[in-house]
């Protein structure tokens, strides 16, 4: 039950994109087509879950025992960058088909602040390892949900006659605002 609450909280109530503002760059950048949004989403689920587990272990097995907690930012970002590289190499060797699908999105993920943000949040909230893993999965599912819905909306917008000044980023931001408004209806669910 506790895990269900964490997942619902991460996906709907405190959606990382729409209410915590993490991962806005890919949210605006790769959301013009549903197919690319799905690819990016899959890559994020994969990397976010792995990164949270690895950084969690690093925090509690290395940084805390050695009293090096102030190195957290440096350590986490290096681990995430290394992990992304490793995933890319392994995926290329083991599953070329999956690499074809996710390949272009993997390098972009290093600078996705949602990955580092969720890794830090999982440590800050004093989760145990299982809770942190579930939290990471929930957060990444929330990212995918927001990205997928948003990409669907933007595909429809191609056909509309939008005022010149609003074209591109402004209308995307306003749409995201309305989507965030819809998601704020989930507040108080858990």
């Amino acid at each position: 039950m506790e895990y269900v609450v964490i997942v619902i909280g991460a996906v709907l109530v405190n959606n990382i994109v729409l209410s915590q503002f993490l991962g806005i760059c890919p949210f605006l950048g790769v959301s013009s087509r549903v197919s690319t949004a799905v690819g990016m989403g899959a890559a994020v689920i994969f990397v976010m879950t792995m990164a949270t587990i690895v950084t969690y272990l690093i925090q509690y097995l290395i940084l805390v025992p050695l009293g090096l907690v102030f190195l957290r930012t440096v350590a986490f970002i290096l681990v995430i960058a290394g992990l992304v590289q490793l995933v890319e190499i392994v995926l290329k060797k083991v599953s070329p088909a999956l690499y074809q699908a996710l390949g272009v999105f993997l390098p972009l993920i290093t600078t996705n602040c949602a990955i580092l943000g969720v890794a830090i949040l999982a440590v800050q909230r004093d989760f145990n390892l299982a809770q942190a893993t579930v939290y990471a999965i929930g957060s990444s599912l929330g990212f995918v949900l927001a990205l997928y819905v948003f990409a669907g909306l933007r595909e429809k917008m191609d056909l509309l006659d939008i005022p010149r000044a609003m074209r591109g980023a402004p209308i995307a931001l306003v749409t995201a605002g309305l989507l965030a408004l819809a998601f704020s209806g989930f507040a108080g669910l858990v």
Binding site: L18, S19, Q20, F21, P163, A165, M166, A169, P170, I171, A172, L173, V174, A176, G177, L178, A180, L181, S184
Partner: peptide
């Protein structure tokens, strides 16, 4: 609230 951030930035960028 969060939605207001998106709306305000959207209209500012348009301006």
């Amino acid at each position: 609230m969060p939605p207001g951030a998106f709306l305000a930035l959207g209209f500012l960028t348009a301006a």
